[in-house]
Computed example of a mutant assay.
Amino acid sequence: MAPKLAISALLLLLVIIQALFGAQKGYTIEGLNQVKQYLKAFGYYSINGGSLTDSFDDVLESTLKSYQQHYRLKATGRIDSNTLKKMSTPRCGVQDIFNDSNDDVKPIIIRAFNTWAVVSNFTFREANPSDIVMGFHRGFHGDNYPFDGLGNVLAHAFAPQNGRLHYDADENWNTNNVIRLNQIDLETIAIHEIGHILGLGHSQDPNTIMYAYYRPGTIKRNLGQDDIDGIRALYSN
C-alpha cells in the first residue's frame, strides 16, 4: 500500500529530515517524529502514531539500521550523510517491507519459513534489523533486476548472505486457501524464494517447490523430496 502523504507534506518532511543531520540515540529534537513517520510510511515501523515522539529511542535506532541495511548503507543507526541523502531522493511510494499491519501477509510468511524449518536445522524468528528483508516492488527498484509488470517474473531472491527477497507488486497475489485461475499464490512463491535465500538453486523436477516455473491459479505449498534432499545436503553438518 502506498503511503498517504501529499506531495507538499512529503517535501516538508524531507526539509525536516535534513535539519536533523547527525541525530543519534539519546537526542530529543523537534522533528524526529517526522523521521519516524517517514520510516512508518515505507513499512519499517509497526507501532501506532501515538508512539511517534521526538525522542531518539532504541526503537528508532533499530529501525534506522533496518532501513540502512535494506539499502546497503552502513548500519550506523544514526541520521548520517548517506542515510540523509537516500531519504531525500525521490522514490516510489510502495512500502519496502512488511510490517505488523499486514494481517493477511505475515502468517503466510511465517508458514513459508516454517516449511523449511521442519526439514532442516534452521530456526527463524522476527527481528529488527533482520538478516532477511522482504518487500513488494515495481519496475526498477535498486537491485539491477527490474520487475516487468503483470506476468512473467513474479519475484526474486538473492543467495546467502544477501538476504533480500522481492515480490512484483503488480501481480495478482492470492493470500487465501482458495485461489482463482488468474492469481499467484503468495505462500507458494514465498517458499520457493526462501529456498533461494537459503542457497538452493532450481530443480528440474516439476513436482518440487524449487522448480523454476509456476502455473497461475495453482497452490503448491509442500516440499518435494528433491527440495528436502537439497537443503539437507547443503547444511549436513
Results as ranks from 00 to 15, higher is better:
207 N>T: 12
52 L>T: 03
237 N>R: 05
146 P>M: 08
185 D>R: 03
107 P>R: 11
8 S>Y: 05
64 L>N: 01
90 P>Q: 10
65 K>H: 01
79 I>D: 00
112 A>R: 04
98 F>S: 10
20 L>V: 04
91 R>G: 01
211 Y>I: 03
45 Y>V: 03
190 A>Q: 09
60 L>C: 06
11 L>D: 06
83 T>N: 04
176 N>S: 15
101 S>P: 10
58 D>Y: 10
186 L>V: 02
16 I>T: 08
31 G>W: 05
60 L>P: 04
48 N>H: 09
124 F>L: 04
75 A>C: 08
235 Y>D: 00
102 N>G: 06
68 Q>A: 09
53 T>Q: 09
236 S>T: 00
226 D>P: 06
119 V>F: 14
21 F>G: 01
5 L>M: 15
185 D>P: 05
57 D>A: 04
152 N>C: 14
59 V>P: 01
64 L>W: 00
202 H>S: 07
46 S>H: 08
148 D>E: 15
72 R>E: 10
190 A>T: 09
18 Q>W: 00
21 F>Y: 10
52 L>F: 08
106 K>V: 14
174 N>Q: 14
139 G>V: 12
194 I>P: 02
215 R>N: 14
16 I>F: 05
92 C>S: 15
203 S>R: 01
40 K>C: 08
119 V>N: 13
26 G>C: 07
52 L>Q: 07
148 D>P: 09
177 N>Q: 13
41 A>I: 00
146 P>E: 08
67 Y>D: 02
203 S>W: 02
106 K>A: 11
103 D>I: 15
105 V>W: 06
182 N>K: 09
